[in-house]
Design a protein around this nucleic acid. Structure first.
Length: 497
RNA sequence: GCCCCCAUCGUCUAGUGGUUAGGACACGGGCCUUUCAAGCCCGCGACAGGGGUUCGAAUCCCCUUGGGGGUACCA
């Protein structure tokens, strides 16, 4: 089977596009077929030069390597439509000769006025086919005058057109609902209706998976294919992905719903520290389902089971909470070393420490295993461990009351810190188990709950209410640094008096 | 306005005439526990409504309602 992903380079790729590409990829790999990347850049006005690179980066991030495409080549090159302009022009000419299409000389202004009038009088909007009925003389006059023109499809004015969508079945529309769509624009470049049909045919595409927004123009595509005498590929219209609010098609803008910010663009998910495996798993289960009893699966397993005929036609909102949960699952599957390596580039930017230096930092080796089960995204790591990379005097106690042990007042909390400091000064070796045993003993001796005894230390060390486990945190800092921070905690508490 | 598509817990979904309508996330509770997590256990929670067809409908048909998409010399 031959399957293509055919995006327009008009901006950043969002998750809806990535999901389409993923399903293309899954179907190609499932059938042992070919996954093709084709760039539909025929809209010069919306073209964005940067988006092609970003698009390819996004696809490769997810692991969707294409077998044929702009950079890798292939038997049907070129794979960028503007480089194929002559092909479309020739095909438009073929339809013109057959009488299946005609030249239209109407100006944009006339078209606008016509539509406005139609809307005002509550008529269905659409081209009035004025140029379809031009006499040969009139046509010759316009050509002689050098008027610019477009090529329009001559849609049958009666009858019905039926096409098949694999997941929805046969769909029939009345031809009177259809318009004489523009196939070739006045700049000589084709519209989607021409370019995609020509390329799908020439590139021998067997299955077209595309967004549901194409469903209403599918009859046009059927008519274009018929005009050429071609068979349409199998059409599969994937349900649109809805905004997190469940209202409307997902936009490329970050969406804030109930105070929470939702990402939409692939590059945003990459920099937030979502793992490609988690995203692959996540997207596979929106619109399709691997197995209702299995949430986590391997790519190979998904490829083996994937079936386009089981795609759900219902538009869906992305379950973002589930993505976070899945990402956490995949983070926990990583070895600590692998996690550390993934974390370093992100932490390096956030902490402003050179990657090589971070990689060699002992503190990271101790702390990473401690935060592994606490992370949902990699970009959260910094909040867990930033305190470890500061100097004692950089720790800010925004809320000094955090230094109070549970059920203890300031004086008692100071007593606890000083009591523990004495232990910390002498204990050997300075390791988590040893420190913990000693602290528990001291808590008993002072008749304080372990949690109440530990609390002031946690706050003194990190400046935070929530932190990684206390004794590993101490190990990471080292004895001297811990003692400095404990002293600072005592001073802060003394101010509370 | 017109055309097309869709409709199971809050969300993602399983279900293709006979199920106590299943799972996951989220949420609530409990256990564990040095904070927070993770993990384990329990719970809450859905067939949009109305007509048919049938011995029997979440499943088939129709209508209503709701949602979505399209209505460009954009894709």
């Amino acid at each position: 089977m031959r399957v293509r992903f055919a995006p327009s380079p008009t901006g950043e790729l969002h998750l809806g596009g990535l999901r389409t590409a993923l399903f293309d990829y899954l179907w190609a790999k499932h059938t042992g077929g070919t996954f093709i990347l084709r760039i539909e850049d025929t809209d010069q006005k919306r073209y964005d030069a940067k988006s092609l690179e970003s698009l390819m980066r996004g696809l490769r991030w997810l692991g969707l390597e294409w077998d044929e495409g702009p950079d890798v080549g292939g038997p049907h090159a070129p794979y960028i439509q503007t480089e194929r302009a002559a092909i479309y022009q020739q095909h438009a000419e073929m339809l013109l000769e057959k009488g299946a299409a005609y030249r239209c000389y109407c100006t944009a202004e006339r078209l606008d006025e016509m539509r406005e009038e139609q809307r005002r009088t509550n008529q269905t909007t659409g081209y009035d086919r004025r140029c379809r009925h031009l006499s040969p003389t009139e046509r010759a006059e316009r050509e002689a005058a050098g008027l610019s023109s477009v090529v329009r499809l001559a849609v049958p004015t009666e009858g019905k057109t039926t096409f098949t969508d694999l997941i929805r079945g046969d769909i029939t529309v009345d031809n009177r609902q259809l318009q004489d769509e523009v196939l070739l624009k006045s700049d000589g470049l084709p519209t989607y209706h021409l370019a995609a049909m020509v390329d799908d045919h020439l590139m021998e595409i067997s299955h077209v998976l595309r967004g549901e927004e194409w469903l209403s123009t599918a009859p046009i595509h059927k008519l274009v294919a018929e005009a050429f005498g071609w068979e349409l590929p199998v059409l599969v219209h994937l349900p649109v992905i809805l905004d997190p609010s469940g209202k409307g098609k997902m936009s490329k803008r970050k969406k804030v719903v109930e105070g929470k910010e939702y990402l939409a663009l692939v590059h945003e998910f990459i920099s937030a520290g979502y793992l490609p495996d988690a995203m692959f798993n996540f997207l596979t289960n929106v619109g399709w389902n691997y197995d209702p009893a299995v949430e986590i699966f391997e790519r190979e397993e998904a490829i083996e089971r994937f079936d386009i005929s089981q795609i759900n036609p219902k538009a869906a909102a992305l379950p973002y909470d589930k993505l976070d949960w899945l990402n956490g699952q995949y983070i926990r599957q990583l070895t600590p070393t692998a996690l550390k390596e993934q974390l370093v580039p992100i932490l390096s930017k956030q902490l402003k420490i050179a990657p090589a230096k971070l990689l060699a930092d002992n503190r990271l080796d101790i702390l990473v295993p401690q935060i592994q089960e606490r992370l949902k995204r990699l970009d959260e790591a910094v909040e867990w461990i930033d305190w470890a990379f500061k100097d004692a005097d950089e720790i800010v106690y925004d809320d000094p009351s955090l230094l109070l042990g549970r059920k203890l007042d300031a004086a008692q909390s100071i007593a606890v810190l000083e009591d523990g400091a004495a232990v910390l000064r002498t204990i050997e070796p300075f390791l988590p188990d040893e420190i913990q045993a000693a602290f528990r003993e001291r808590a008993d001796a002072l008749d304080v709950k372990a949690g109440g005894y530990f609390g002031p230390f946690r706050a003194a060390i990190s400046g935070k209410k929530v932190s990684p486990p206390l004794f590993e945190s101490m190990q990471a800092l080292g004895r001297d640094e811990v003692l400095r921070r404990v002293q600072r905690g005592v001073e802060e508490l003394a101010k509370m008096g």
